[in-house]
Amino acid sequence: MMNPLWLGTRAWQKQLLGVVALCLVTGCSGGDSPPLAEATGQVTKAGAPLVNARVEFYPDGPGGSSYGTTDQEGKFELFYSTGDPGAALGTHKVVVIGGSTDAAAVPTAPAAAGEEAGEGTLAPVGMPGGPGRGAGTAEVKGLTAEITADGPNFITLEL
């Protein structure tokens, strides 16, 4: 039978600390994220900025989706599904959801308690637990964009 006293030795504690440190340095979490590049852009409709629209990028190749929300000038910044800034490299299918060309009509109040808001949430729009698309919300599909490593990646989307 093994002696349980070895658990209290300093050598064992040092080995455990070494393993934990190695995991922190090398990333024991799996790190399934592909290489990302910063990506920003602007959405306009008939030449006017599209305000408070949800912009979703879905890569044709490996990697997860990236999301952003347009500001008062129709500009957005993409955040990968893990919350990191950027998008996977390569060609993406782009979906624009909602928004208004009348900035005065867009509410600026923060999300109600219990609602998810902002980029980088782990529950994307339209998924269970995520902010809903809502009935009658305009959705534009059929757009594409290319994200490159050498950037800058400023994507102009004219609807």
Rank of each mutant, 00 (worst) to 15 (best):
T91I: 12
I155E: 07
V94K: 00
E139A: 12
P128K: 14
V51S: 00
T108G: 04
E73P: 01
G83T: 07
N3A: 07
A105S: 14
E77Q: 11
G30M: 11
Y67H: 03
S66A: 15
P85C: 04
A37F: 15
Y80I: 10
T82L: 09
V51H: 01
T144D: 12
T82P: 06
G132W: 03
P131D: 03
T144M: 11
S29F: 04
V20E: 07
G114V: 02
A53G: 06
L122N: 06
G129S: 09
R133F: 02
D71R: 05
G63P: 03
T44K: 01
T137K: 00
S29D: 14
V19E: 09
P152C: 13
G74W: 00
P152Y: 13
A113K: 00
P49G: 07
F76S: 03
N3R: 15
P49M: 10
Q42F: 01
G27L: 11
P34N: 04
G63S: 07
E77M: 09
F154I: 14
A46T: 15
W12T: 15
P152D: 13
D102M: 00
K141R: 12
M1V: 15
D71S: 02
P59K: 07
G129E: 11
E38S: 12
T91N: 13
Q13N: 07
G90E: 04
T108S: 10
P85K: 09
E38N: 10
V51P: 00
A135C: 03
T137H: 00
T40K: 14
I97F: 01
L159Y: 03
E158G: 01
K14N: 04
N3L: 13
A135T: 14
D32N: 12
P34T: 14
E119R: 12
K93D: 10
L24R: 12
G8Q: 12
Q15K: 07
G8M: 14
G118N: 06
C28M: 07
A113H: 00
L17F: 11
L17H: 10
P152N: 07
R54S: 04
D32I: 08
H92M: 11
A112I: 05
E73W: 05
P131Q: 07
E38P: 05
P128Y: 06
P34R: 12
M127C: 02
S33I: 11
T121G: 03
G63C: 08
